[in-house]
Simulated assay, not measured.
Amino acid sequence: MKIAVIAESFLPHMNGVTNSVLQLLRHLRREGHEAVVVAPATSWAGPAWAAEQAPAVVEGFEVHALPALPLSGYPNVRVAAGTVSRVRRLLERVSPDVVHVASPFVLGWRAIQAANQLGLPTVSVFQTEIPAYAQRYGAPWLEQLLWNHVRTMHAASTINLTPSSYSMAQLASAGVPRLRMWRRGVDTERFAPARRSGELRRRLAPNGERLIGFVGRLAAEKQVEDLAVLADLPDTRLVIVGSGPLKAQLQELLPGAYFAGFLGGDELGEMVASLDIFVHPGESETFCQTIQEAMACAVPVVAVGRGGPLDLVDNSRTGWLYAPGRLADLRGHVTDLAYDDAKRQAFASAAWASVQGRTWPVLCDELLGHYRSAIATAGARV
């Protein structure tokens, strides 16, 4: 097959959308398929952004980079400019069998319209609960309008993929048709118990403290400030991995925490495996890949019981879930695991076992099946 991958977010900005696209491209190359990527490029904001370029080639596949503007208040995130006609011309030139639309919103919506005009099948992947961000960014009145946009985009797509049962129910209640489940894989070589580093632990926890870690964007939707309820737990230390617009504010709020900055590759795997407990307070996760990566490292999880974590965390076996807003429960669950070595080890073993078999090749093969289904559906309409 030849696949046009439309990425609402892409390199050099790393997040869940970018990571899943990169994993897909690696799989397509290994399996002998063809692909092209359409993604946001450098900003128009001036010379300071000259280095913020999307690469021209990834995994041997060409990247068509469209000029983009930085998102206000979050300059690392870029919104691609250009019209439906421009995207249509790109797709005409590429002539793909199917169009994969990763987390559509602006660029993705243009691609869906362009593909429909050309009679090309689209597989749209719901990966970001953008309507939920409205409340966090001080614009709650936008939430329903944003859900209307989500429904319009996905109603125009051949097949819609959702990463969790919670998201599936959300989209179904919003009136989105043709829904199918597609979860995410985990790299069980990069994220593995063997990555645990005694040297790193001695540096971060010189007195044998329990390391409680978070990995993700330091942005409003991740609710990292909620971790302040853990800051005074005796014989523990918070480890915050990631970058984003709230970094300085969070460093002031959590002066005893270790801020590792952005980590990737084996360095990230080593850090996650060296934790004792993984925490995730964000309430708007459609999946939450970092939870799955922590579990692959045999690190038990305490997460908010909404969205993707509901599928990933088996409550009282691989970790603990707490109700949104119940920060006393967050503290209580972390306390339960931090000071009970036997329970923490039992949860860790169960967490590791629960993610075995969820490799990216398995999940990407499943995605290829969705492509074939979309192609067959589009062919039946002709």
Rank of each mutant, 00 (worst) to 15 (best):
P40N: 06
P206H: 06
A139W: 15
F287E: 03
L263K: 12
V87N: 03
R190S: 00
Q249G: 08
P121H: 11
D187G: 02
S124L: 10
G16L: 01
Q113P: 03
A174W: 14
E285F: 07
T377W: 12
I159S: 05
V101S: 03
N15W: 02
Y166S: 12
I159R: 15
R26F: 06
Y339C: 01
V239F: 03
V87P: 05
T236D: 04
L233T: 04
A35H: 03
R86E: 01
R372V: 01
E62H: 11
V302Y: 06
L204T: 05
R30L: 12
E143K: 15
G60W: 07
S103M: 06
W44A: 06
V241G: 04
I277R: 10
F347C: 05
Y133G: 11
L118D: 11
D266T: 09
G265N: 05
A220F: 12
T188L: 09
Q249E: 13
D232Q: 14
Q127F: 07
E270L: 07
T236N: 05
V77G: 00
V272Q: 07
P281Y: 14
N116A: 08
E59K: 08
W360G: 00
T188C: 07
P75M: 01
R88S: 00
P12K: 08
E189S: 08
T128D: 12
E209M: 08
F287K: 09
Y137W: 15
G242M: 06
R381P: 03
S157M: 09
L66F: 02
G357N: 03
G379V: 06
T152E: 13
P245H: 14
M153K: 11
